[in-house]
Amino acid sequence: MRILHAVTLHSPSHAFGGPVRVALNLAKGLRARGHEASLVALGEGFGDPWPTDVEGVPARLFRARRLLPLGFSGITSPALLATAGRLVRGADLVHVHLARDLVTLPVALAALRAGTPLVLQTHGMVDPSDKALAKLLDAVAVRRLLRGADAVLHLTPHERAGLEAVVGGEPLARAVRLVNGTPAQEERPPLEGPPRILYSARLQARKRPVDFVRAASLVRERVPQARYVLAGPDEGEAGAVTHAVDTLRLADRLTVPGPLSSAQVLAELRRAHVYVLPSVDEPFPMSVLEALAVGVPVVVTRSNGLARDIEAAGAGRVVEPGPEGVAEAVLELLDEDANRAASAAARKLAAEAYSMDAVVDALLEVYWSVTDR
C-alpha cells in the first residue's frame, strides 16, 4: 500500500515536536511491514543538499514560507499547495497529522476532493477555541474534514470530546482510538556520577519549563550535587527560563543546550536518573514514552494523558502542577531502590502498552477497513 503521511514542519531543531516523531515512527513501522510509506511536510533550517528522506523515510520537504506572524499557522509553501493534488492522487491512502495550518489542511482537502482514502490524526492540536483564526479555519475547512474523513484517530476520550465539540456536538461516527507508540530501546546502562534530571520538550508556556527550573532549585537544597538539563527549541519561554536560572543561581548546575537531535535526546535519556515534563493538558507526550522505553522514571502532572498508566504501573510519579510537587517527586525517585523499581516498571509499561508493533497492527486494521470501504 502506498501511504502518504502529511505533517506541518520538519526541521533540524525538531521545532514541531511530537507529531513529526509520531509520523516518522508510524512510517518506519509501515515500511518494515512492506508498505510504501512516505512523508510530506514543510522543511526549514536545512542546508544544501536539501533532504530527500528523514531517518530513512522518503520525504518531500517544501521550503517553508512565513506569510503571517502566527507561529506554525502562518507558514506554508506555494509549491506544496500547487503539488498537493498530484501527491494525494499518487497514494492509496493519505494520513494527515492535522493542525489548523496552511499545510495539513490543504493536503487533507486535496485528498477529500480526489476521493483518496483519508485518515486524520490531530494529536490534541484541534480542540474548541475562541480565537478568531481558529473559528475561521473551522468554518472553512476543519469541520468539513472531520465529517468527511474515512477515519479520525484520537488519543484519549477527552480529545474525542473536543473534536466532537468542534463539529458542533455531533458524534464522530468514524472516530478510532489509537495510542502513540515508541520503538523498543536498549535499557539505560548502570547510572554513574551525580544525579541527572532531564527536561526535553519545547520551551513553551504550557510545557512549564520554568517550573522545572524552580523545582531544580528546591531539589538542590537536599541534593546539592544533582545536575539538570533543560533541552528543546524555544517557543517563547527561553527568556523566562534564563531569568529564572540567573535569579536562582543555577547556572553552574543547570544547562540549556537548545534543541537536540533524536540521537542526542536518546543519549541524554541514557544518562538520566529522572525525566520531568511539568506541562499541563498534555495529550500523549512522545518524550515521556521515549523515556519509559529507555527505563527512565518520569514525573508528570495529573492532566497528562499518560498519567493514569504511569501511576498504575509505578513507572514514575504523578503530581499536581507546580515546582513543589515536581521537586518532591524527583527527590523520591533519586532514592536508589525507588529508582530501580520505577525504571523496571517504565520499561515494562512501554513494551506492553505502547510498543510500535501493537500500534502498527492497530493502524493497519484502520487502513484496511478504510480502503475496503
Score class of each variant (00 low, 15 high):
129 S>Y: 04
129 S>M: 07
130 D>P: 10
131 K>G: 14
132 A>N: 09
132 A>F: 09
134 A>P: 00
135 K>A: 15
135 K>I: 02
135 K>E: 09
135 K>N: 11
135 K>Y: 01
135 K>D: 08
136 L>H: 13
138 D>W: 01
138 D>G: 12
139 A>W: 13
139 A>E: 13
140 V>Y: 00
140 V>S: 07
141 A>Q: 10
142 V>C: 13
143 R>A: 04
144 R>S: 09
146 L>S: 11
146 L>H: 12
147 R>P: 09
148 G>Q: 03
150 D>V: 10
150 D>K: 03
152 V>Q: 06
153 L>Q: 05
154 H>N: 13
154 H>L: 00
155 L>W: 08
156 T>V: 13
156 T>P: 11
156 T>Y: 08
157 P>E: 12
158 H>I: 05
158 H>C: 09
159 E>W: 11
160 R>F: 02
162 G>K: 01
162 G>C: 08
163 L>D: 13
164 E>T: 05
165 A>G: 00
165 A>E: 15
166 V>P: 11
167 V>S: 04
168 G>K: 11
170 E>A: 15
171 P>V: 13
172 L>S: 06
172 L>Y: 08
173 A>Q: 12
174 R>I: 14
175 A>S: 05
176 V>G: 04
176 V>D: 05
177 R>G: 03
177 R>A: 07
177 R>F: 08
178 L>W: 06
178 L>I: 07
180 N>T: 04
181 G>I: 01
181 G>A: 09
182 T>S: 11
183 P>T: 02
184 A>Q: 07
184 A>R: 14
184 A>Y: 01
185 Q>W: 03
185 Q>E: 15
185 Q>T: 00
185 Q>Y: 03
186 E>M: 10
187 E>G: 15
188 R>G: 14
188 R>I: 04
188 R>Y: 10
189 P>R: 07
191 L>D: 07
192 E>G: 10
192 E>D: 02
192 E>T: 09
193 G>Y: 05
194 P>S: 14
194 P>V: 10
194 P>K: 03
195 P>V: 05
197 I>M: 01
197 I>Q: 05
198 L>P: 01
198 L>H: 07
199 Y>W: 04
202 R>Q: 15
203 L>D: 12
204 Q>C: 05
205 A>W: 14
205 A>T: 11
206 R>N: 09
209 P>S: 11
209 P>V: 05
209 P>Q: 08
209 P>R: 01
209 P>F: 09
209 P>D: 08
210 V>M: 03
211 D>Y: 14
211 D>K: 13
212 F>M: 00
212 F>Y: 13
213 V>M: 02
214 R>H: 02
214 R>I: 02
214 R>Y: 09
215 A>R: 04
215 A>H: 02
216 A>E: 03
216 A>M: 07
217 S>E: 13
218 L>R: 11
219 V>T: 00
220 R>Y: 05
221 E>C: 04
222 R>F: 06
223 V>A: 03
